[in-house]
C-alpha cells in the first residue's frame, strides 16, 4: 500500500472538517462562516482523495473535481450575497442580521441594532 497509512489521511481530513465546523459554529462574521464552509468542503474532498488512493480508483478524484466546481459556484453566490448584505446593512454580524424579525425581502430595512459585537 502507499506509505501513508489510510487511517492517518482520514484522521487529518476529519480534524480539518471538525475545525471548519467549529469555525462555522463559533464565528459570527458571515465572511468567516463562508471561509469555514470552504474548509469543511476541502476536508471532505481530502477524504475522497484518501479513499480513492486507498483503493487505487479514479472515482475519488472525480468526486473531488465535482466538489471543487460545487465549491466554486457556492462561493460565487455566497460572496455576492455577502456583498449585498453588506451594502444594505453595513454589517456582517450574523447575530445582528438574523434577528428573527427581518422583513422578508421588502425594502424595509429594519436596522434595529446595527453594531453588535463583531467576532
Amino acid at each position: 500500500m502507499a506509505s501513508v497509512p489510510f487511517e492517518y489521511g482520514l484522521l487529518v481530513a476529519g480534524v480539518l472538517f471538525v475545525l471548519g465546523l467549529a469555525g462555522v459554529l463559533v464565528r459570527r462574521n458571515l465572511l468567516f462562516i463562508l471561509l469555514c464552509v470552504e474548509i469543511m468542503l476541502n476536508a471532505a474532498g481530502l477524504a475522497f482523495i484518501v479513499a480513492g488512493a486507498r483503493w487505487g480508483q479514479a472515482d475519488g478524484q472525480v468526486m473531488f473535481i465535482f466538489l471543487l466546481s460545487m465549491a466554486a459556484a457556492e462561493v460565487a453566490v455566497g460572496l455576492a450575497l455577502i456583498l449585498l448584505l453588506y451594502g444594505r446593512h453595513k454589517d456582517l454580524d450574523s447575530d445582528a442580521l438574523g434577528g428573527g424579525n427581518e422583513p422578508g425581502r421588502g425594502e424595509g430595512r429594519g436596522l434595529a441594532r446595527g453594531g453588535g459585537a463583531r467576532s
Binding site: E38, G45, I49, V50, A53, Q61, I65, L68
Partner: peptide, 23 residues
C-alpha cells in the same frame, strides 16, 4: 503524496488561486 498529482494541482490552482482571489 497520496498519488493524486492532478487533483493536487487543481487544488492549488482553483482553491488557493481562484477562490481565495474571490475572497
Amino acid at each position: 503524496l497520496l498519488g493524486a498529482a492532478f487533483v493536487a494541482a487543481l487544488e492549488v490552482i482553483i482553491y488557493a488561486g481562484a477562490i481565495m482571489v474571490l475572497f
